[in-house]
């Protein structure tokens, strides 16, 4: 459901148009096309819109101006907007993905392992952008194995163990790392989720 609309049977494009954005875990295999230029990577979710194309032809002058702006805004270090994404550093590749996914005006953002393998500066940058989206009112679903990252960014934490959600916790100061750890290890389980476990076993 996105903005009250059921999208489970829609195509990927329709889901994106409905306001879904997704930053995948694997930024090389899924998030970008390494041999394509930065411009081609950024316009992939918008090239068909009227600003970007006219009578079946892509307006590259407009697209490149658009991408130059985004390169500046997202601090992507690259010699040009036509530079192949695969030759950029990991942090810059991730910023190209952010520049695309965060500027499509999403209402739901699914973000997977956004800082995996990045340097401290880039991590800081990614966190700032995610917080920015939060304040703009977008729903962010952060999927991460980095506990510090989750504690920094999340409002509410769902802990999963063995493929199931075992706890739902509010992220406040009182929350102890130890407590999350116990849920993660399967030592503890919140009662409302235990029910699910029991009924699953019977079935």
């Amino acid at each position: 459901m996105i903005n009250g609309k059921d999208v489970s049977k829609e195509s990927t494009r329709q889901r994106r148009e409905a306001g879904l954005a997704y930053i995948p875990e694997d930024r090389i295999a899924l998030g970008t096309s390494a041999s394509a230029s930065i411009t081609d990577n950024i316009i992939v979710d918008r090239y068909f819109k009227s600003d970007f194309s006219k009578a079946g032809w892509i307006r590259y002058s407009f697209a490149m101006t658009h991408c130059r702006e985004l390169i500046h805004r997202f601090d992507i270090r690259s010699p040009s907007v036509l530079f192949p994404v695969g030759l950029l550093s990991g942090g810059n590749i991730q910023k190209v993905i952010l520049a695309r996914e965060f500027t499509s005006d999403p209402s739901i953002l699914v973000v997977c392992e956004p800082t995996w393998g990045l340097d401290v500066r880039s991590i800081r940058f990614v966190y700032d952008r995610i917080n920015e989206m939060k304040t703009k009112g977008a729903g962010v679903l952060l999927v991460s194995s980095n506990l510090d990252e989750i504690l920094t960014l999340a409002d509410r934490i769902l802990v999963m163990c063995g493929g199931r959600v075992v706890a739902s916790l509010a992220n406040d100061r009182a929350l102890a790392r130890r407590e999350i750890g116990e849920y993660m290890m399967g030592i503890a389980c919140q009662p409302e989720f235990e029910e699910v476990e029991m009924s699953n076993r019977h079935a």
Partner: peptide
């Protein structure tokens, strides 16, 4: 420079990326 040409290039360079992006 055409839309279909773009889709062909993206699909050819990384088909999973194309599908993920909604092509």
């Amino acid at each position: 420079f055409s839309r279909l040409g773009y889709e062909i290039r993206i699909t050819g360079s990384n088909i999973s990326f194309g599908a993920y992006a909604g092509i």
